[in-house]
Design a protein around this nucleic acid. Structure first.
Lengths: 124, 124
DNA sequence: CCTTGACTTAGAGTTCGCTCGAAGCTGTAG
DNA sequence: CTACAGCTTCGAGCGAACTCTAAGTCAAGG
């Protein structure tokens, strides 16, 4: 698979794919005889995993740490797991914050909704 | 209340408070005779509200839009409400994404946990 | 009177995560 | 042969949201 197809299948831009490779988040891709990157479909699994980490707010620096451990092989699984568990912990906390902020937002919106023809004034 | 106390009570840094004032997210604060900012406690309510918007991922540009509408008085309540509803919609979608990513993360971690003395290899 | 600490301003600098531009190479279709 | 699409590298640029620096003012305590 060339980069153009990977763009379609991963949702990342070609610029971003090259950037990720440059910083080490994606492995250095094999090149064909025109030095064009040639990907194996297995890269999609890794990209999807990175996406999930990204969606959950993990900074690139930490994804790099994970990627580096992965490079080192099975011996690092304990550490990788610990890293993911710590992340999960933070995600859960963030989720709770989000939910409570959302609840407050609901209350606020309800305040606006109840305002019949400007009889009350929601001042924030 | 001077800025130092507001820092303690709001959790924002003095730099950030001044920055927010500069861009219009916080109203221009009254100054005492030494041109030091002097806040009314009511500012805390507004800051808490901004915090909630921030936590839920609203960009500053949109908070500014809200703040501007608020300045214009009760006539803009409909628009403010619409803005918050649109935001709520996005937050809910984001929350759903987060939850599904979290579930995937749980599965992944479980994969590591089940790995007894390196018998399986979690390759991402 | 002097020091200390909290404040003031304007503007520059930082971090993050991309995103883009320039200049050039390659393989295929017409 | 030529045109064109699609890739390559390298380095610069960008938008968001702060964060910090420099130089100065002011009020209270010793």
């Amino acid at each position: 698979m060339k980069i153009g197809e990977l763009v379609k299948r991963s949702g990342l831009s070609a610029h971003t794919i090259r950037y990720y490779e440059r910083i080490g988040l994606l492995p250095y891709a094999d090149r064909d005889r025109s030095s064009h990157r040639d990907y194996d479909t297995s890269i999609l699994v890794w990209i999807a995993f990175l996406e999930r980490l990204k969606v959950t707010g993990m900074p690139i620096s930490e994804m790099l740490r994970y990627a580096a451990l992965r490079q080192l092989g099975p011996a690092t699984e304990g550490e990788r797991r610990a890293l993911l568990e710590a992340h999960r912990h933070r995600v859960r906390a963030h989720l709770a914050n989000l939910q409570s902020a959302l609840a407050a937002l609901d209350t606020k919106i309800a305040g606006y909704s109840d305002d019949i023809a400007g009889t009350t004034h929601n001042d924030t």
